[in-house]
């Protein structure tokens, strides 16, 4: 089989994988809310810093 057919089939397969990834993104709700993930990502840093002192906060609020 000619190399061009191999290339085309490969390219379509790769594209199908990306299409599948897109479907998964849509189905898993990544397009439902496009704002919170953008800030949630930035919060993680802060969260990890607080983690160590978590117990004190919990105690006080109980």
């Amino acid at each position: 089989m000619s190399v061009i057919l191999v290339l085309i089939i490969t390219s379509i397969v790769v594209a199908v994988v990306f299409l599948g990834a897109f479907f998964w993104a849509v189905k898993s709700g990544q397009y439902d809310d496009t704002f919170s993930p953008s800030v949630r990502m930035l919060f993680d840093d802060k969260a990890s810093k607080v983690e160590g002192d978590k117990s004190s906060s919990v105690k006080k609020n109980d």
Binding site: S36, A47, V58, N61
Partner: peptide, 13 residues
């Protein structure tokens, strides 16, 4: 708001 609401677990285990 998002930050606080997503860390509610700290306010109540």
């Amino acid at each position: 708001c998002i930050w606080l609401l997503e860390h509610l677990s700290r306010l109540n285990p």
